[in-house]
Nucleic acid binder design. Sequence first.
DNA 1: CATGAATGAGACTTCATTCAT
DNA 2: TATGAATGAAGTCTCATTCAT
Lengths: 196, 196, 196, 196
Amino acid sequence: MATVTDKRRQILDAAVRVFARQGFHTCRVADIADEASVAYGLVYHYFSSKDEILDTLFLQRWGMMLEAITEADRSHHSAQGKLRAIAGFIVDSYRHNPDLMKVIIVEVTRAANTFGRTHLARIREAYAQIAAIVARAQAEGVFREEITPEFAALAFYGLIEQILSGWIFDPDPVRDDELERAKDMIVLTICRGLEA
Amino acid sequence: MATVTDKRRQILDAAVRVFARQGFHTCRVADIADEASVAYGLVYHYFSSKDEILDTLFLQRWGMMLEAITEADRSHHSAQGKLRAIAGFIVDSYRHNPDLMKVIIVEVTRAANTFGRTHLARIREAYAQIAAIVARAQAEGVFREEITPEFAALAFYGLIEQILSGWIFDPDPVRDDELERAKDMIVLTICRGLEA
Amino acid sequence: MATVTDKRRQILDAAVRVFARQGFHTCRVADIADEASVAYGLVYHYFSSKDEILDTLFLQRWGMMLEAITEADRSHHSAQGKLRAIAGFIVDSYRHNPDLMKVIIVEVTRAANTFGRTHLARIREAYAQIAAIVARAQAEGVFREEITPEFAALAFYGLIEQILSGWIFDPDPVRDDELERAKDMIVLTICRGLEA
Amino acid sequence: MATVTDKRRQILDAAVRVFARQGFHTCRVADIADEASVAYGLVYHYFSSKDEILDTLFLQRWGMMLEAITEADRSHHSAQGKLRAIAGFIVDSYRHNPDLMKVIIVEVTRAANTFGRTHLARIREAYAQIAAIVARAQAEGVFREEITPEFAALAFYGLIEQILSGWIFDPDPVRDDELERAKDMIVLTICRGLEA
DNA sequence: CATGAATGAGACTTCATTCAT
DNA sequence: TATGAATGAAGTCTCATTCAT
């Protein structure tokens, strides 16, 4: 009984590695099966299509992301503290499983013509929650009002994604202290800006 | 005499529309030929492969981008003014040809596994130039030093790309005044931050 | 269980017929699949390319040919007897599977620019073995020395191939007694010559 | 006026080189035009198709061959002398223009499925003439009768073609004295055989 | 659950030939 | 005669998905 789940998990984990390494379009279902050390056909026993594997990976991870944002929003932190919690969660996600984050970002959130469009609504939930945090901070007079909450949310998330992109492109693994510092720099940049 | 160039241009323009509409991977060379109203084979008369069409589009556009950044850097503006010029150029590029910008962003700069990797060096030239602007501003004491220039450059560019992404995903065309306001919000956000 | 081998064999046999009928260049992979009554894709399940099918056919057959020559050489026949055994083997090969022999000759051994070049080394092994037989006969004083063994080997093999070519071009199947007589005429010609 | 002929000749000569180097199927019409340093379209001004170029080359050369055989037959040589004249002509043809001979042999006389079939009748005229020489020699009691004239003709011609094939495959040019000796060995082999 | 052979639609690319200039 | 752009049919190979065992 546990076998079922094991093999399924095995396939998902293998898919992450293969998608990260070769990209979704470039890899074949056979590559996933090979990487997972399971028979070709078994992939189709657990998933109805290659797309569904990526959908599953994204939905699982993005669900955790939304929970993390909700969690952050529920906390008693300041607006800046909430953004710091979110940035921290995303960076930690990368630390914990960089391949998965690469796949989520490269193959889904930035894939405007394919999976990005499919999951658009779900992706925007995150932006909306972040925007809500910003809006409330503006109402409290903590954040400036010239910048719309929606714009701010995109800016915040886009900034983070680009930093992660830099790491993703980098052949060398990123050092832990660099990850840690990045969390602070993200928040500092988005809250206080570059100007001295 | 002008025919050669005309047809070639015709194909490139058609490719932009088709790539923007269907995505690079999803469209067939036949779609480009149809959209350009030329024979199938003519595409291969001017370009050695489907890839080369996208490469050409990217290289042309990114070259202009690098020039614009160089130009901005050479100007006598303040650091903020230079960033404003760059943001302005990118937003205007989108206004002028949103399809092309969509293709550049979605199919190249964010395609970590395919064209993004191919053109990585060229893409990073832009980041490096922006970083240089930031570094100089830091040396002058105008920008804070806690944020590394490289980080700042990624943050700035990532922020802009995400804003454009928002427009790209949007089915409705963006209004001109919104584009105009975005330029200011970009600079305000990156230079002064969200905090009041 | 035997299915794997069966289908693979089925494809090879079909390829022989199709290559013989239409020629390697003129036939399409689809023709092979049709002739074998298998799906298009299965051809590529067993062979990596159309070329590999011909390579396989050639290598299998030529291997048997080399064995036959080795066998003949090992026998206690006279030099003439050995040449007779080799000529006999080749003619019998034609009798048994004229299509295959046609393909081997027309598409490989005589295709100087394509497969002939690819398999040159392997083809020359046969010439070398025959030359060795001649050389030994010369050492024994049985064969004249004015003709180099290499020349003799080419002459012998070329003579046979041309006779087979004649049959190959012929629309009517060759009668068995004609095949049988050819064996003798080949040996008579190469050993004793035309002169009375 | 001479220009017309010049360009046409230029194209034919270039075709010989290109066909010899890459093979008829592998080369493109553009390669011929390039090699001839003429415009693409000009090839089609002088020849109605790529096939016709090869046809022309073959027909011209084979015509000379038939004349040479006729000539040899008309001479007052012995049968052996006539065969020697023919072998000499073919070897000299190779010496004079190895590329052309390579093309004739590889792309036409041995191409059972394509040009060989097209020109079969013309090719067989040569065999028939040679067979006639043999038949007459048999009638005169000079050649043995066990070997049919048709068989003898194929044997003679096949032997020669195989020797030329050896040279064709050879990366190094053949030395003149080797060519000269080959003429004698050909005749010796076919008339007297290998046996001492 | 598990296996991997079998299916066949689809896409890129090539290139002989035509044609307008 | 000369040019080379334009045409489009054809063929190889890929690979997601299905299915029999």
